[in-house]
Amino acid sequence: MINLVEVQGYARIIMTIVLVIILYGYILHLYRSEKKGERDYEKYGKIALDDDITSTPVEKNPNLHQKKEGEK
């Protein structure tokens, strides 16, 4: 039973480190892909500003069927 606590300690430390790596990897990913011009993340900020039902979506949802209502 004592061992479980030890395992917990190690699991916790390792998980913390893994999460830090993932998170900072994500930071790198975000800034790199923007620098390379692959993506522009800041454009998503416009989703909130330009949000009338008639305004053009920042990225259109391709799955959207054209029928209007009555679907599940």
Binding site: M1, L4, V5, V7, Q8
Partner: peptide, 14 residues
């Protein structure tokens, strides 16, 4: 969920 598992389960058994 994973956080919960590691935080709670070991103490639980004891």
């Amino acid at each position: 969920a994973f956080a919960g598992v590691i935080e709670i389960l070991p103490s639980f058994a004891e």
